[in-house]
Amino acid sequence: MAKHSPVIGRYVTIDVDGYEYKVFYLRNGQGQPLVCQHTAGCHNHQWRGLLEDEAITRDYDVIAYDLARHGKSDPPHNREWWKEEYLLTADHYMKFVVAFCDALELKNPIFMGSSFGGNLALQLALHHPDRFRAVIPVEAAEHAPGFFLDWWRHPHANAAQVCASGVWDLMAPQSPDQDRWLTWHYYTQGSEVFRGDLYFYSIDHDLRGQLGNIDTRRCPVIMMTGTYDYLTPPEATENTARQIPGGIYIEMEDIGHFPMSENYPLFAVYLREALRIIEERT
């Protein structure tokens, strides 16, 4: 008897600023849409635990897509993309997510992203508060400088290993070896886009002085960060949440920057709390 997962993968084609993207997404569950963004230079397998978590999928329609140029989502089919330097901007990134949600006709989705997806969640709460029921920025901050590095695609080094081992200690040492090495494996696959993603993460994303304009009555913001995250340490997230009127911060003990991928059972404890708060407030 074959052992099939209930998770289904599909492609949908969307247009973002004239770029034609054929987007791959994984989906499982029913009810409230929960749209999930992977971390920079990675892909949707980071959400593998959540996608098969029956305690979540019985009430939530979990949708984890690959951002264009990541995983099974190709670069734009209508552009000579190899002649342009890839540098992701907040504006294009937001348009991508909104176009994807529109294409799937999702009503009031909750958006959850980690790292550069977490920073995007803050951008969406600020600029598109009525398109999303709530956002869950994971491992996010108002500003995250320091990771837009040339090492990620340096031609004199093995970029796959530099990316994968360069993010290794973003994970907590307590997280299971199997899951940490899977995450390492994923990170060997996205080295050509990692640096361009981090242009958004460390350069273009800067909400300093703007957090007070986020209206959490229209779009609640529940932030979560792990204690082993050196890139966005807990104090950075807490300081960000404190500046958002009505913003909530949850600290996750003994986990790092890739919580959904490095230790899903532990992450799920905190995620259920975040979802409970959203149910209460909306």
Binding site: G166, W168, D169, L170, A172, P173, T227, Y228, Y230, P233
Partner: peptide
């Protein structure tokens, strides 16, 4: 190791 002592990058 305690957080921030758990690797060379951290």
């Amino acid at each position: 190791p305690e957080p921030m002592y758990h690797g060379i990058w951290a």
